[in-house]
Design a protein around this nucleic acid. Structure first.
Lengths: 192, 192
DNA sequence: AATATTCTGGACCAACCGGTCCGGAATGTG
DNA sequence: CACATTCCGGACCGGTTGGTCCAGAATATT
């Protein structure tokens, strides 16, 4: 009955996400988005609504994907390895040749969160999710013996959640993997 | 002979800085700047040049002021106290009622540094300066006994320099002082 | 093949962007 | 008091912004 959509909605959302992730909200123009997705303004608008709505959709897809990735990472049997792996992946991002975009939630914590309650809520929720994953992993590690420190799991998680955006900012600013690994390992050594 | 400037250049630069610091580069319009400084476009332009030049001047004044503050903080006799004080000041920023702007270099690491070599150089230089101050303080603390850890001072400094932007991002995103203190103290405990 | 429906490209829009410029106001000097 | 000099408000500019809209192309159904 109707003409079918010629493009893949999810694919277009993913392309838009890459731009927002890289350039931020303000730094991204509609021209950037049409170029990246290959769509015209009207298709973009008809499908996703205005710029902000598109941004939120893209950001939410990012958040869901990252949450899923994290979940998988923390399924690692050895809890201490899981935590180390989680951070190692961030640093790997710095080592890979291409320009690193860091973590979008961290970027948004800086760009929009201070003046946009909707974004701030999402950012806080993301950090909380990670902190909880840390805390759970630490408790598990303390039970299984992979984490020998008897320190309070919640406090240890609060320490790690500070390191997370720290690393992400460093990666986005162009720090080398080498210079980050040393400091990270030192911090993780407190788990032993 | 000539009509004297009616405004204080440094004062105007400071006002402009506040806006850039709060809203970022892209998020700040010339209208914001004229409103904050009370100057007209032509005065702003004649005194400081274009937006980017003004931004760099404001940013550099920020960097100089912060470097000076840091220097004073690290003059604290007890090296371990100096480090703790340095971080405590960041968290105090979160506790003070007004909206926290975080650290401008951290903000710029996210906003402009990835696509602007000039800014990136400044950001990297700032982080390096802090890392060096950490390393020096740690060595000093190890000598004087205020820092008991025998770990390599450089590695410890690399750990702390990861925490720095981490805390700043958290503060800017609106984290409470309480939730940050625990994690911070845990990290600092590695110095003991 | 005809048709109804929906997609899509690009013209179009008002508002705002950073930046320029000029004419008049203000002021220190002689 | 007159003048040279500098400051400064705001008009003005071209380009870009996010956003709207419509005419025509494309297609699943009948």
């Amino acid at each position: 009955m109707a003409r079918p959509q010629e493009f893949d909605t999810n694919d277009a959302l993913g392309k838009a996400l890459q731009v927002f992730w890289d350039k931020g909200y303000e730094g991204t123009t509609l021209a950037d988005l049409t170029e990246a997705t290959g769509l015209s303004k009207s298709s973009l608008y008809g499908t996703f609504g205005d710029k902000r709505t598109l941004f939120l959709a893209a950001y939410d897809s990012y958040r869901a994907a990252r949450a899923q990735q994290m979940k998988i990472t923390f399924q690692q049997e050895n809890a201490r390895d899981a935590i180390a792996l989680f951070f190692a992946k961030i640093i790997d991002d710095a080592a890979s040749g291409s320009v690193s975009k860091g973590c979008m939630s961290t970027n948004q914590a800086v760009e929009l969160a201070p003046h946009d309650a909707v974004i701030r809520e999402r950012v806080e929720s993301d950090f909380k999710l990670i902190e909880t994953a840390f805390a759970d992993a630490i408790k598990r590690g303390q039970e299984q013996g992979s984490i020998q420190s008897k320190q309070d799991a919640q406090l240890l998680a609060q320490m790690l959640i500070i390191a997370f955006p720290g690393l992400q900012v460093m990666v986005r600013a162009g720090a080398s993997a080498d210079s980050l690994e040393g400091g990270l390992n030192m911090m993780l050594s407190i788990l032993d």
